[in-house]
Structure formats: structure tokens, C-alpha cells
């Protein structure tokens, strides 16, 4: 009995009319119409998930306006309710529903959201690099920190203008921009900057576990102009960790 009631009530709070009717059939009369009282739970769930999505997608929220965003969030919540009671993980597919003009912003918003909650790890510093024997440098297994997102073909500049909460990092190797880099810095602020093809290739190579020299080679082929300075930029921004130091 309880299991059936709970399935019906879960349907009811996500807008299923049949489930709503089944729950109402089992309610006792009260001063407030039980239909209206049950609807309070539907409204609570909708408002909570709209708030969660608005926090995860602030630039999209600002771009769409309150009313349109709430309508879309309600639709998304009913199509894809959370599977887990960990709401910081909720909303991955929302970007696919937003208007095409805002989909790039949605992907960047989500990358920033993931960066905020990503695992901590030991940062590999420029000083640590200096301690590596020259004959070990080539095979050094550095990886982007867990908070890193690489978003090809997205210029982050318009998005960053909507996100004063983020750190804007000047990347001396960002022109011509081929994509966006989003990560969490060692000071725990989420940051973003544009990326060139060469830098993108370097980070993709490292993320694939190529080893430092092989990743560098792919970056040079992609047009990276200054490998030592690029590597110094990544290390100074807290973007790299040794593979064995990355959180599981």
C-alpha cells in the first residue's frame, strides 16, 4: 500500500494527473481543500528545482528572464527529475533545452558549476617542475586538475561579462581564440579564459595521458607558439596535477 501511494505521490509532484488523482482519493477532508494542499508539494518541488537550475545556470537565467527560465526549468524537471538527492549534481542535460542562442552560455555555466564542486587535488607547481631530473621530463604524466573543462569552439568573453562572480584570467596565448578553458584555481575561485588551438591541443594531450613531451609535440603541431611560456602559464594558474596526485 505504502509503496503504491509513494509512486503515485511522486508522480503527482512531477505533474502526473493520474498520480495526483490517486493520492487525492486517499486524503481525508480538511479545512483547506486537500487538492490545494497536495498542490503545495508540487509547487515546492518545482520551486526547489527551478532554484537549483538557476544557481547552476546564472547566465542563462539572466539571459532568458525569470518567467521564461522558470517555464523551461519546470519542463526540464518533469522530463528529467533528479535521480539522486545530491542537487549539486542535478541539471547536466538542461543546456540541451535552452534556446539555441544561449546554448553556449549554458555549456559554460555548467562547466563553471562542475568546477566549483570538483574534487580537490595536489597542484603541480613550476617549482616542482624544476626539481624533475631532465631525463624524466619527457614522460612526466601531468593532467589537468579535476575541475578543468575544455570547451572547443566557444568564446567565453560574452559569457564572462555575465558572470562577475568568476575570476577572469588573462591568457597571453589566447589569440586567435579556439575555445574556452574553465577551472578552479588554488584560491578556490572558478576562473575562465580563452584558449588557442595549440593550448587546447596541449591540455587535451595531457588529459589523454600522453606524457609531457608527446602532448607538447601535438601542441606544437597545432600551432602553440611558445611551449615553455605556455607551460608556465598552466602551472602558475594551478591547472596541472601529477597523475598520481589527482583525486580518484
Amino acid at each position: 500500500m505504502l509503496k503504491q501511494l509513494q509512486q503515485a505521490m511522486l508522480g503527482a509532484v512531477y505533474g502526473d494527473a493520474a498520480g495526483f488523482a490517486r493520492v487525492v482519493d486517499g486524503l481525508a477532508p480538511a479545512a483547506v481543500d486537500p487538492v490545494r494542499a497536495l498542490y503545495l508539494h508540487t509547487a515546492t518541488v518545482t520551486a526547489a528545482l527551478t532554484g537549483v537550475l538557476a544557481q547552476a545556470y546564472p547566465a542563462v537565467h539572466a539571459g532568458m528572464g525569470e518567467e521564461a527560465f522558470s517555464a523551461l526549468a519546470t519542463r526540464f524537471a518533469r522530463q528529467q527529475p533528479p535521480a539522486l538527492p545530491v542537487l549539486s549534481a542535478y541539471g547536466a542535460g538542461f543546456a540541451e533545452l535552452v534556446p539555441p542562442a544561449l546554448q553556449g552560455m549554458a555549456r559554460l555555466d555548467w562547466a563553471a558549476h562542475l568546477a566549483y564542486f570538483a574534487a580537490d587535488c595536489q597542484i603541480f607547481s613550476l617549482e616542482a617542475l624544476a626539481l624533475i631530473p631532465p631525463d624524466r621530463l619527457g614522460g612526466l604524466d601531468l593532467r589537468p586538475v579535476p575541475s578543468t573543462s575544455l570547451l572547443p569552439a566557444l568564446d567565453p568573453a560574452p559569457w564572462l561579462s555575465q558572470r562577475p562572480d568568476l575570476a577572469v584570467v588573462i591568457n597571453p596565448f589566447e589569440s586567435p581564440p579556439a575555445g574556452a578553458l574553465v577551472w578552479r584555481r588554488p584560491d578556490l575561485r572558478v576562473a575562465a579564459c580563452p584558449l588557442t588551438d595549440g593550448m587546447l591541443a596541449l591540455l587535451n594531450g595531457l588529459a589523454a595521458g600522453l606524457g609531457l613531451f608527446a602532448a607538447a609535440e601535438s601542441a606544437l603541431v597545432a600551432g602553440l607558439p611558445d611551449l615553455p611560456a605556455s607551460l608556465a602559464f598552466l602551472l602558475n594558474q594551478g591547472l596541472l596535477t601529477r597523475h598520481e596526485d589527482a583525486a580518484p
Binding site: 501511494l5 505521490m9 511522486l10 512531477y14 508539494h41 518541488v45 537549483v52 533528479p82 538527492p85
Partner: peptide, 15 residues
Amino acid sequence: CGVAGMHAPDLLPLP
């Protein structure tokens, strides 16, 4: 607040 892999962010009542 949920069944079968579906969560609702509310404190839902039970008889």
C-alpha cells in the same frame, strides 16, 4: 523524498 532512482526535493508525508 523518492523512489526507484527518482528524487523529489521536498519532505513528503506518509500515513
